[in-house]
Design a protein around this nucleic acid. Structure first.
Lengths: 158, 158
DNA sequence: AACATTTATTGCACTACTGCAATATATTTG
DNA sequence: CAAATATATTGCAGTAGTGCAATAAATGTT
């Protein structure tokens, strides 16, 4: 059975191929810290880096796990000194989970490496193709951005 | 401190942004089966789909885990009827781990959904930009392809 | 003030992944 | 054939993630 689809197939394959390359870069960037944190733990760090300090219940919500799971994941991150627990003074029930300097550094490390690798690939492209890529990616990102945003699941991690 | 780098920064950011979108698509595609298999299990299925039937020791090698881990992961996959164990007749020590029809279907399901989502994004792009993207991605993939290939770690999964 | 709600945590139970060491079997090598 | 090697598996032990239920404490509501 042929694809039987409207849009040109080769483009899809090219994007899938690029996607593999980009996922590989993300995975490599992540690999450097995988002896320090697990993937779920890294996800938590990314959420805290992106949204700032959160209460356990909100972190749980962001990660789509139960509060008890979030609490215990953070136990481990606190033990590793990547996250700090700060008791709220306005509401003494609440706890603020915030990245420590080390936690922030860990996330930056991964992010920086990812950027570095992307730059490295870009630098191997002819300038003309780079220009084309920039313009095309603007359209691509716009098109992708309109897609349903429920990508939190694993996407946040990478 | 400014980036202080040679290549144009905006391009890097655009690629990172596209990368996030693509990883999100991959994650969403994976999400649909995450109640059937764990991420490590899915990795195993992908390896078997890509390389054909393997012995436990070779699967372990591909996944970078110990043979005992591979054996036991496959115990679970066999229990789920996604993988079959076939005893070799040439060497009675060996076992062939092969995808069952269901296992193959599961991997296809994820792959197809990924393609479908990529097509969907592409279909939202103006034809002109699509053409540009095709050309630019050929160069990008070539540039990325020359990068060091140690991407197996997590990359295989997505 | 009494009751309800929110929040975090802990107890409990379970599954999965992980590797090392031991074991059983089969094949290869000397 | 005997010793070495290869292969798969199982026993054991530990870590992590997971959620439900119970608990404790604080705040909000009536």
């Amino acid at each position: 059975m042929p694809p039987a689809d409207s849009s040109p197939v080769p483009a899809t394959e090219l994007v899938i191929s690029a996607s593999r390359a980009l996922v590989a870069i993300a995975a490599r960037s992540l690999a450097q810290v995988e002896d320090q944190v697990t993937l779920p733990q890294y996800r938590a760090l990314v959420v805290l880096a992106g949204r700032g300090a959160l209460r356990p219940v909100d972190l749980a919500d962001a990660l789509d796990v139960s509060p008890s799971t979030a609490t215990r994941m953070c136990d481990r991150l606190v033990r590793k000194e990547l996250v700090e627990r700060v008791h709220s003074d306005t509401d003494r029930r609440e706890v603020e989970l915030r990245l420590s300097a080390e936690g922030r550094a860990l996330v930056s490390e991964v992010t920086n490496r990812r950027r570095r690798e992307v730059r490295r690939v870009l630098s191997r492209m002819p300038a003309e193709q780079q220009a084309r890529l920039i313009e095309a990616l603007q359209a691509f990102n716009a098109a992708a951005g309109e897609a349903p945003e429920s990508a939190l699941a694993l996407g946040m991690s990478l």
